[in-house]
Amino acid sequence: MSRLVFLLNGPNLNLLGQREPHIYGAETLDDVKRACSDLARDLGLELDFRQTNREYELIDWIHEARGKAGGVVINPAGYSHTSVALLDALCAYEGPVIEVHISNIHKREEFRHHSYVSRRADGVIAGCGTQGYLLALRRLASLLA
């Protein structure tokens, strides 16, 4: 089984550290990428870390993961609550999927309480800040072992 992990980030995460730091913290996406790369190396995983603001690009990346990546960690951000197309793409992917949210979506606005992606995810991590990414990588490494 492939030890390659696609770590995919959705819209507005390029603004991490600048946008609503009282909700999302002060770490940047580059900080997250560095921490995830270090941990992935320690866990014997190969990491492909990406971010986009475009729904179709996330879908294309999930399609690319088919037959290539052993697992997917995804923070779909706002698309969690709106994108059946993203759910459909994940359902066509056969490996494990871990969904990550930096904030606790269940303590926020009502519309954020539902995630289409969660219907497909093998695990959901929410409210652990950017540490959620590291927890997701640890879980994925366990599933791929």
Score class of each variant (00 low, 15 high):
143 L>H: 12
29 L>P: 09
130 T>L: 10
51 Q>H: 11
40 A>W: 00
134 L>N: 11
79 Y>Q: 01
99 E>A: 07
20 E>S: 12
143 L>I: 06
116 Y>L: 05
31 D>W: 05
35 A>M: 06
124 V>Q: 13
133 Y>Q: 00
55 E>I: 14
131 Q>I: 08
32 V>A: 10
41 R>I: 01
98 I>G: 00
108 R>T: 02
111 F>H: 12
70 G>R: 03
104 N>Q: 05
109 E>S: 09
98 I>H: 06
63 H>W: 08
50 R>N: 10
117 V>N: 11
136 A>Q: 02
56 Y>D: 10
2 S>W: 04
87 L>Y: 10
80 S>F: 05
135 L>N: 13
90 L>W: 14
104 N>K: 04
67 G>M: 07
3 R>L: 08
84 V>R: 15
60 D>S: 15
91 C>Y: 11
71 G>E: 03
58 L>V: 01
80 S>N: 10
44 G>V: 05
41 R>N: 13
41 R>G: 14
37 S>K: 08
108 R>L: 11
118 S>G: 09
118 S>E: 09
76 P>S: 14
85 A>W: 01
140 L>V: 03
141 A>N: 10
42 D>Q: 15
116 Y>P: 11
6 F>C: 07
120 R>I: 04
136 A>I: 01
22 H>I: 05
33 K>M: 05
21 P>A: 11
66 R>P: 03
9 N>S: 06
114 H>S: 11
141 A>E: 12
94 E>A: 13
69 A>H: 09
9 N>F: 00
129 G>C: 08
51 Q>V: 14
47 L>D: 04
104 N>R: 06
37 S>C: 07
82 T>S: 02
58 L>R: 02
39 L>T: 06
53 N>Y: 09
111 F>R: 05
114 H>F: 10
72 V>I: 15
69 A>I: 02
124 V>K: 09
97 V>Q: 03
65 A>E: 04
36 C>T: 07
